[in-house]
Write a protein that binds this DNA or RNA. Structure first.
Lengths: 98, 98
DNA sequence: GTAAAGCACTTTGTTTTACAAAGCTATATA
DNA sequence: TATATAGCTTTGTAAAACAAAGTGCTTTAC
């Protein structure tokens, strides 16, 4: 058996980033505030994890206005989808001992 | 939807501990050296993660002799099995958005 | 019109964690 | 005697998580 943890993506070691991706993979676009509430996080903590995910281009940001009020939403990218799926595959293989 | 990451076990945030548990859940008893090779880790790093898992009683240690040479093997406990399964369930629910 | 509150951050600082590297004890082998 | 292996512990460093506070802008309440 080859080292099973080598195939895991370090980005997804974090439960929060895993949570964000899990939400974004089933929801086209989710606002900062919705994520914050869903995952029960402080602003700073969420922002920093979103930043990490954005840096590696696993998600993209849309800044829009609702009236004059800013509204920021996040969506997963193709790259993010692929990376997430690869990670889940690796996880599954590891757990099932394949 | 309730906060999906709250049900994850912090012990398993670590890829290495996840790897150890994945191995021990399908192998009754595995030696320090086998784990070290399977997961490609330094002694100290492996030892410290094993320690963490032992502290929370997710695994137990057997120290035996092969001749006069010590041989240490590790096995998962019932508690460890349960915790691991709960974690995997929580993961699955989170990912599938249940 | 002033105050308070919300959104989406950034900055700062602390604590925790991961990890490598070296050291240690005991045995085994060359 | 010297080197190697098993299974650790200790030490030190670097990275990560996180809370809390601060910021700028807007909106709502009084």
């Amino acid at each position: 058996m080859k080292n099973p943890i080598a195939a895991l993506n370090k980005i997804f070691d974090s439960r929060i980033r895993l949570g964000v991706m899990s939400i974004l993979i089933v929801n086209d676009s989710v606002s900062f505030n919705e994520l914050k509430q869903m995952l029960d996080l402080t602003d700073g903590n969420l922002a920093s994890h979103l930043n990490t995910l954005e840096q590696v281009e696993f998600l993209k940001v849309q800044k829009a206005f609702i009236g004059k009020k800013t509204n920021t939403t996040y969506s997963i990218t193709e790259l993010g989808k692929q990376a997430f799926k690869l990670h889940l595959d690796a996880l599954e293989k590891m757990i099932k001992g394949i």
